[in-house]
Structures are given as structure tokens and as C-alpha cells.
Design a protein around this nucleic acid. Structure first.
Lengths: 227, 227
DNA sequence: AAAACTTGTTAGTCATGTCTAACTTTTTTA
DNA sequence: TAAAAAAGTTAGACATGACTAACAAGTTTT
């Protein structure tokens, strides 16, 4: 309750848009994020996104000029980080205590992140002994709102012969997460790039004594650190 | 997810109305619950309640004739019990693991009970080792939807000299719950009725080596079993 | 630089759920 | 039992947040 951001009294939708903007603008470090990209990301029409952006501009959480790129204000950014923190703490809780699998946590955490109670989040953090990473390998911002961006390279950026370690996955698609765990990849898996097919840039990778061929699209969503 | 009631795809509001109806019609065993009582309970206008009742009648969750009393169908009742189960499990979780006090649990549980995930509730139940009572002393319906009503007598029904044990409190007002814990009453407290004032039916009670005088309204919200 | 394409905006509609004000029906009470 | 009070209903307005369709502004392409 005694969280400065609750004075904004945002709706669930407004929160969704702020978090989406943060993930597009800040986490992906894209140069320019426009209205239509935001709409596509949130699976709404461009008109809906435009409409919401107006509201968030009135509330001084978003800045943009007409026909210009979208940006978050300092407050907008802080609220978004707070939402990311809540999302990741809930994911960790579901995974570690509620027996949820990798691919099940996201959907329920999307609901739980909108629960309004600063105390609940602080206590959840304490209860889990202040975890630093969520089940997908992403860093959890602390209670002061400090966030760190892991410089993320994707598997698709590697050359033949390189070795790497899986540090995170893009968690936005259940189908993708299912696929990842089905073929046996997990956090910290060591992967060797055996071959990159000229034709469609699909990649043959080796890990834990097996070999799999994955598409470029798949590899785009696997974040790794080069070994 | 694999809960039969999710096929109804109810909104948060629809769920609130169903739960309210259950608590008025079934738990309080009132003979007749009308539209305006429902409205008052939910703190909405009679028009709003009327509007929602129409929707729930279309969905075959509520039955009533024009100008007649309100009732839940079997499905309506089962959904409401499921909501009560979720609410009470979350209250228990907040109280036992998140260091929430008696008077803090209700508000947050009101939000948490709308989270859609049957798995989460089952796991939460398992995690807490299948608790039977919530922090206010109310019984938690099991996963099959069996619910038990504790025959509730209120403190205000006792005569001078009678002894009783506090088994539950009405959890609908934070101010009330705060008052209860401030004067030192808790679940299982033994109370003796020392005197009932003729003038306003206020009651002097003795418990844990102290004496307090409480109003009739207060005593109406304290549920006890006679010793 | 004009045409074509992409992106952003506006106008108008719809569903949900709230409200007030006015009206009708039922119940109470004098 | 007839008037008054209480309870229930309807009509119409509003806010939120989604949509489609049409249009305007920027960006490429040729």
C-alpha cells in the first residue's frame, strides 16, 4: 500500500502497456519503437494502442511527439520496473513452491503481477530469500527498483564451432517454452554450434550428448553467453 | 485450467456478485434476499445490481422472478463455493506465510481470489498442508466443493452469565477487525458475559483477565460457540 | 519528385459495468 | 383499504478499452 506508484491508480490495461513499452524500449534497446510495434506486441489494434498512449501521455508516464517514437518518462520507467519485479517474483514463486513448469509460470504471473499490495511483494521476496533470477534466467529488480540488463546475445548470432551457455529464454510464448523443454534444453545448458545451414540459417546444435537442428526463429529466442 | 467452472468465463464483477449472493443467501441463511440488499452489500446502486442479476440469470447461475427473491442455481452455488475456497486459502497463505495480520488479509485476498488457475489453488492447498480453517475461523471448502456451515451464534445472543468461545468473526470490515485485535480478542478466546445494559444492549464482557464493554453492533459480528 | 508503401491518427461503434433519475410494483401501516 | 414507504425496474448517461474503416503523414522506391 505504501508504494509511491499506487498514487497513480493505474488500470490493469495501463499497466500492461507500460510493461510492454519497457520491454520493447528499454530491455530490447531498440532505437525506435512506434505505435504499431507496440500494438503488435500487445496483440491489439493500432487504434487501441494509440488511444492508450494518449492516456499515458496525459498521466505523464509516456512521452512522444505526433508521429514520433515512444518513450517512457522516469516515473513510467519506474512503474514498469516495479511490474517486472512483481512478475518475476511471482514466476519464481510458482516455479519453486507451486510445482509449476517453465512454460506454465508466465500466464499465471501475468495475472498475479497486477495484485495491488506492496507488502505482499516484499514478503514474497523475503519468503523466497531474495532470489536474483527468475525461472527463465532474467534478473529480478530489487525493491529500490534497480534493474540490470544482462547483455543478451542470441544463439542465432554465433558462428559454427562456438560454444555457449544458455542464460535465458524469451518467455513470451508458451509454445516456444514447451518446445525448449521438450528437446531437453534448460538454464545453464552448454551448447555447441555444429553447423549453420546456408539455405535457411537453421542451426545444428549439440548439448548434453544430443544433437538437434533448430530454426533461426528458435535461435533468436535463446539468449546465451559465449564460452 | 481444467476446472469445469472456467468454461463460464466469468468477469471479476460477475464473480463478486455470485460470491456475495452465496454469502447472503446460503451462509447467512436469510429467508429472502432482494436486489437492494445485494446492492447494499456490494456497495453499488440498486440499478447496477439489477443489471448484473439479469446477466447472471441469462447465464443460468441465478434464478428469480420479477420482483421476487434471489436464488443461486446449482452451478451458481458451486462457482461461489469455489470462490470462497480460493478466498480463504489465500487468506490463510497471507496470514501464515506472508506475515499479514488479521485485518490485512481480506483486502488482498479479494484480489487474489480472481486469479484464474486451478493448479495454483490445488498447489497452494497442498503447500499449506490442506488447512481446514482460515484466519477468521471460517471453514475452507475442499477441492470437491464440499462446504460446511458452522452454526453461528453471535455474542449478542447470549444471556448474562453465559460463557463462550470465539470461533469466527465477520471479516467484511477492516475497521471492525482492527478493533477486535486492539482490545485483545482472538480466535479461541474464552469470553464471559458479565452484564447486558438495558438501555442500548451493550455488553460488558470478560476475557483473558480483562473487562471491556462492547456495543450490540460489535457483538453481532462476533461468532461464538456456547460453553 | 511522384508513386507506393508503411505507419500513425481519427471517427464512430460496441461491450462491460457503473451511475442518477424516474417510474412501477409490492409491502407496510395508519 | 387506501395512502405511504420500501423495494425493484427501466431509461439514459458515462468511463474504459477494445474494434473497424477511413484518412493523413512520413518513408521508400523507382
Amino acid at each position: 500500500m505504501t508504494n509511491k506508484f499506487y498514487s497513480y491508480k493505474l488500470t490493469k490495461s495501463e499497466e500492461d502497456y507500460l510493461k510492454a513499452l519497457f520491454q520493447l524500449v528499454v530491455e530490447n534497446e531498440k532505437v525506435k519503437i512506434g505505435n504499431n510495434q507496440l500494438a503488435e506486441y500487445l496483440k491489439v489494434s493500432p487504434a487501441s494502442a494509440n488511444n492508450m498512449i494518449k492516456k499515458l501521455k496525459n498521466k505523464k508516464l509516456v512521452i512522444s511527439e505526433k508521429y514520433g517514437k515512444l518513450e517512457l518518462t522516469q516515473d513510467g520507467k519506474e512503474i514498469a520496473v516495479w511490474l517486472v519485479r512483481k512478475h518475476r517474483l511471482w514466476e519464481t514463486f510458482l516455479y519453486k513452491y507451486m510445482n509449476f513448469s517453465w512454460d506454465e509460470v508466465h500466464e499465471v504471473a501475468e495475472q498475479l503481477e497486477h495484485i495491488k499490495s506492496a507488502k505482499l511483494i516484499d514478503e514474497l521476496d523475503r519468503f523466497m530469500d531474495y532470489p536474483r533470477k527468475d525461472p527463465h534466467g532474467d534478473l529480478i529488480p530489487n525493491e529500490k527498483g534497480d534493474y540490470e540488463l544482462v547483455p543478451k546475445t542470441t544463439l542465432s548470432n554465433l558462428k559454427t564451432g562456438q560454444r555457449c551457455k544458455l542464460i535465458a529464454v524469451n518467455d513470451s510464448s508458451v509454445a516456444f517454452l514447451k518446445y525448449v523443454s521438450e528437446i531437453g534444453l534448460a538454464l545453464s545448458s552448454e551448447i555447441v554450434v555444429e553447423e549453420i545451414k546456408e539455405f535457411d540459417k537453421s542451426i545444428r546444435i549439440a548439448f548434453s550428448n544430443k544433437t538437434e537442428t533448430v530454426s533461426k526463429k528458435f535461435a533468436d529466442n535463446i539468449f546465451i553467453s559465449v564460452l
